[in-house]
Every structure is written in structure tokens, then in C-alpha cells.
Write a protein that binds this DNA or RNA. Structure first.
Lengths: 333, 333
DNA sequence: GATCTTAATGCAAACGTTTGCAATGATGTT
DNA sequence: AACATCATTGCAAACGTTTGCATTAAGATC
């Protein structure tokens, strides 16, 4: 505390070498004799020396930081507290660390409109991972056009000037719906907001399967929160009674809201109504009945996101990619 | 893209002033004539100019960054995916941003053992917020002793050389238990790990209320995950049948695991067994029956954590502080 | 009109790294 | 013995800000 911060030149003097030698030694540069390197590294450890990242970043023109920005719709009630989003962030954190980068957790509040200026020109991060494609992609596009290394979690089918990684929502939608039908449902209900890119794909899958099987189907457009789902099911039952026997919820949170509403009205799940969710959040297996759902492999996706971003940093061109999702059958269907 | 990065001196030349004037203008320094300031600020906006944070940090010896480190036990299965932890992080993020700071999301993997070296000497952040006190506080203590500005989310009763912010776990434990008793329970069960500081306090509250009311009570020590809780309840029922009619779960995740196990065995909640959790995560109100719980005011806590950290940055001495928790009564009790 | 004060701006040093190039001494080659 | 090669190290510039101090111009005071 009393002593002033040790800097590289101090360490060098302590070791009896020049600053440049010390710098190279700490970076394990083979230019420096091996025993010198080890001696200096040991000395650094002994004195709890850490390189000044600010100075290093200034000189290197690199931060070794990746910014993650949670990109939510203005009109949704879905919040950054959503378990699925947080799971994604947490997986990205792991993947980022494994590559030796740090994670700057950001949002539109801090980054404003000009992401390139804020993160890249501002030397706060070397690249940006956007979680949540949203409905409006202007900011992402602008950043990409300005040359920001950027990757997005979203719907990989969307054509864009930046790579998008996400699940095969269409196929996921199909297999969820087919599963409902296989379990005997014939009057299906989709709950979600098809205007949202990823959810739209899930809905397309739903429609595709419905058409193929020639069963009844309806769609109700809701905000993707359990509260909205809960309220919506209640309204539906009140208005038209039990007009469905299978529900494909666009997310697990929605499915859980549905589940609660049905149980409160003594509708049996899965006997009267079968439910399939999407995401496979931790809650899915701990709900009662446990939730059948389409599992998104967020961990694989996170790794891919980071890899693609790093590729961009080394100048390569990258493309969008779909991650296979998988049906996890539990008791709700 | 083709053009090189605009730097402050370029902007200054464009404006026909010196670099120092430009710098002061962007920082709204009243030394500079108001109209000059505004002219330069407008020019900066027009050219999408952003200050180079690395250079600024180097010169200022300040980063305007706060590191958040999620500090988990080695032996727990509780992960960074735990909804409650993530909620806390997300609230801290908001609070940090409101003060004009950025959030570096970190963990032991990156920061290693020497937090002071990594974050402070390394000029990666100006201060550290630790989420999760854990059982072993050596690293936190060492960092504090080395002069790291640091605050901890945990049990405020623990005496330490750093401030701890957290809920009044003891009182929370009492009111949860009293509520169970008031609802007619007379054979109580506590589930959790009293070895953990915060949970220990909750258990003390439990014991206190039990003693006062002179009711039967038992404790089963489990890891604080829903899986452990689920398994534990099943084992308990198998071994000794239904020997309890009220459960105080040390967290909502634990409570939800309990709930599932009971429902699978057709034990009615709340008729046969009343349950109270702790935290009030989003899931608590969407479970069926909705979970009675002790709500932790994470948002207020986050704000307090940040304020205390900033106080330390400006040299003030800070102290631990308890946040009032509150009983939220729902259908599980 | 000379001097003093004040407002506005510019100069140049400093923050702590990394790295191209030069320098040194040792080794090998003819 | 002269020269080329190689391994190891040091010198000094550059990265882009911020800020104490000096400077200038303009207005105020006598």
C-alpha cells in the first residue's frame, strides 16, 4: 500500500536487465535466453508484478477484451433477467475466457447507438457479441458496416452482412409439433411472437408440421414472458373454453406460464393438453410435470460465436451457422 | 474502414485548435469558451469520434471499470447459471452503469489467486465486487489487505476487513419459520448447508423460531441445488415417511426441487406440507403452487454495493450493511 | 497610456508498455 | 587471421491521452 506501483522498468532494474528484455521475458519471447526468461518470470511472481493493461493496450492496439451486449426489444417485457439469456451470457463468458479474452458486459444504455465508435474506436474491446437479434437490426448492421468485428446470436437464416449463430429453429419447430401430434394432440396452439426472427422460424416449423398432418391449429401472439403466457391462457379459456389439446410454446418461460394457468384451472397436463417448450432452461426439468422441450445447445453456440469472432479478428471471412437442437422428452407431453 | 482511426489531434486540427483544447472541450472543461466547446463537440459527433480509452486510462490512472467476480465454492454443484446469482449480477450491471462505470465480468479462472495484482495493478478495473462470500475468504481478505477497493455480497454479520452487503438472513429465517408455524406446521424441516455463512444465519433464525415455539424440527444438510433437494426429499420419504409438515428451504431453487419431489409422491402442498423458500427468483411466482418465499432486495443491494465501492475509491471508509428482506406469501404455505 | 487582471488557448511532459533496429560478444568457417 | 553468422541484449521511438504551466489577447484600473 505505502509503496508505489511496481512497473516494468523497476522489475527490469531489479533483475539487472533492460526494460525491453524484461518485456520480452514476460511474454516468453524466445529471443531471450531461457534461463533469463525464467529468472525474470520468477522475480515477477515474487514481487506480485502485473503488467499495466492500459499501457499495453495502448501500445498493442489490442485489448484482449470482447464486449457482450444484450440487445432487447424496446417493446418487450422480456428482461435481462430472463434465465435463458443469462445462460447464454454465462456460456459465452466461459468460451471467451478459454480463449484468453475478458468479457465486458454491456448494453444499449452504455454503448448508445454507435457501437463501432464506442467499443472499437474507443478501444474498449476488440470485438462484439450481440445476444438477441431483435426485430430491428439497424444498429447491428451499422456497426458491421463500420468494420466492427461482430457476431450475433439469433436466427441464422436471416441474411445479413454479419454472421449469425443460432439453433435450427425451423426444424426445432417441426419436431416439437410432430411430437405433440404423435402424442395424440389434434388441436394445436402456438404461443409466441412470429414477428421476432427466431420465433418466426419456430412458427414456420409449427405450420409446416400442422399442414403435413392436417390437424387443427391456431396461433396467439404474445410477448415472450411467463406472465403474458399465463394471462393469455386464462383469457383464452374464459373466452372459448378448452379449444386445444397440444401447445407449442415458443420458449420455456412461456411454457411454464402456460403450465401454471392450466393447472390452476384443473386442466390435466399431459392428459388433456400436451405442452412442449423451447430452450431447455434449468427450470424445465424441475417443473411439475417436467417440461418436454427443444434443447438449445447454448454451450456449443457460445463456443462457435467466439471462434467466429476471433476468426474475424484475424481477418478471415465468416458465415452464419445453425446449431442442431434436440427434443428432450419429459412428462408434459 | 479504409480511413485510419481519427485521433484527438486530428479532430483538433479539423477544428483549428490545439490538442489540449480539444481534450478539454470534450470533457466539458469550463476553461474553454462555451461556443468553442460546443463547436468541437459537434465536430466530434459528426465524425463519429471516440476517445481512445486505453490511452485515457493510461494517462488518468483510472479505468472507469468495475470488475464483478462470481465466487463459487469448489465443492458445490451450484453454478454460475444459478438464476439468483445471475439476477444479482444483472442488478449490479444496472447500478454500475448508472454511475457511469462499465462492468468487467470475471471469475477465478481469469483472475487467479492474486486479485489485487490482476485487477488493480493490472489496471483492468478500479474496484472489485465479489458475488458470493463462500466458505473460504482467504482470497478476498488478501485482496482487501493489498489495498483493493472491494465490496462483497454475502452475510453482513461476518466480521471482515472489507464491507459486506447482504440480507438480514437471521430475521428472514425467523419470519419464514414463524410463518410456517402460523400456518399450522409443527414438525419443521430445514434444508440447506449451515456451513455457508448466509445459509448458516438463516438456519440460526430457523432454530431461534423453533425454540421459541417449542415445535419439532430437523435439519438436513444438502448442496444448494434443486437436484440435491429433490434427491434428498425422496431419500427422506423413503427412509422415514412423512415426518414433517413444514419446510424452510434455504433457497428458492432448493424449494422448487422439494416441491417437485413432493408432488410426484402425491404429498399435497400446502395441505400436508407447507413450504417457504428464500430469494424470490422469477420462478417463484410461476411455479405451481406459487412459492411463498423471503424476498431479497437485490436491486437495492446492488445499488448499495456500488455506492460503497465508489466511496472507497474516493478514500472513504465503508462498513457492512444489512438489507431488509420481506416475506412474500403465495400458495405453497 | 502604462500596468494589472482575467479569459482563453497552446506547449510539452508524462502515463507504462512493446518492438524495429542497432550493438555486442561468441562461435563457426574459410 | 579475417570474416560471416548467430544468439542475446539494449536503445529509443511510438501508442493517444490529460494537465501543469506558459503564453497571448482583451478588458479593467489607475
Amino acid at each position: 500500500m505505502g509503496t508505489t506501483q511496481l512497473k516494468l522498468s523497476d522489475l527490469a532494474r531489479l533483475a539487472g536487465v533492460s526494460t525491453s528484455t524484461a518485456s520480452r521475458a514476460l511474454n516468453d519471447n524466445p529471443l531471450i535466453k531461457k534461463e533469463t526468461r525464467e529468472r525474470i518470470q520468477a522475480l515477477a511472481k515474487e514481487h506480485h508484478f502485473s503488467i499495466n493493461a492500459a499501457a499495453s493496450r495502448l501500445r498493442m492496439q489490442k485489448t484482449k477484451v470482447i464486449a457482450v451486449i444484450i440487445n432487447l426489444e424496446a417493446e418487450t417485457k422480456q428482461s435481462v433477467d430472463d434465465p435463458f439469456l443469462l445462460k447464454v451470457v454465462s456460456d459465452i463468458n466461459r468460451a471467451v475466457n478459454r480463449k484468453g479474452y475478458e468479457l465486458l458486459l454491456s448494453n444499449s444504455y452504455m454503448a448508445g447507438e454507435d457501437w463501432h465508435g464506442y467499443f472499437i474506436s474507443g478501444r474498449r474491446a476488440d470485438g462484439v457479441i450481440v445476444v438477441g437479434q431483435g426485430k430491428e437490426q439497424a444498429r447491428i448492421e451499422r456497426a458491421a458496416k463500420a468494420g466492427t468485428p461482430i457476431v450475433v446470436w439469433g436466427d441464422p437464416k436471416t441474411s445479413a452482412n454479419y454472421p449469425i449463430v443460432g439453433s435450427d429453429n425451423f426444424i426445432g419447430g417441426i419436431s416439437a409439433t410432430k411430437h405433440l401430434i404423435a402424442k395424440g394432440a389434434s388441436k394445436l396452439l402456438f404461443m409466441g411472437d412470429p414477428g421476432h426472427a427466431e420465433l418466426g422460424e419456430r412458427y414456420r416449423g409449427f405450420c409446416h408440421a400442422v399442414e403435413e398432418a392436417q390437424v387443427e391449429a391456431q396461433m396467439v401472439k404474445i410477448d415472450i414472458t411467463s406472465e403474458a403466457a399465463y394471462a393469455s391462457i386464462n383469457a383464452l379459456l374464459r373466452a372459448q373454453g378448452l379449444t386445444f389439446d397440444g401447445i407449442f410454446a415458443c420458449s420455456d418461460m412461456v411454457a411454464l406460464g402456460v403450465l401454471k394457468a392450466l393447472k390452476e384451472r384443473y386442466v390435466s397436463v399431459p392428459n388433456d393438453v400436451r405442452i412442449v417448450g423451447f430452450d431447455d432452461i434449468a427450470m424445465a426439468q424441475i417443473s411439475f410435470p417436467a417440461l418436454t422441450t427443444i434443447k438449445q445447445d447454448t454451450s456449443a453456440a457460445a463456443q462457435l460465436l467466439v471462434e467466429k469472432l476471433l476468426s474475424q479478428l484475424s481477418g478471415e471471412k465468416t458465415t452464419s451457422q445453425e446449431i442442431p437442437s434436440s427434443l428432450v422428452i419429459r412428462q408434459s407431453s
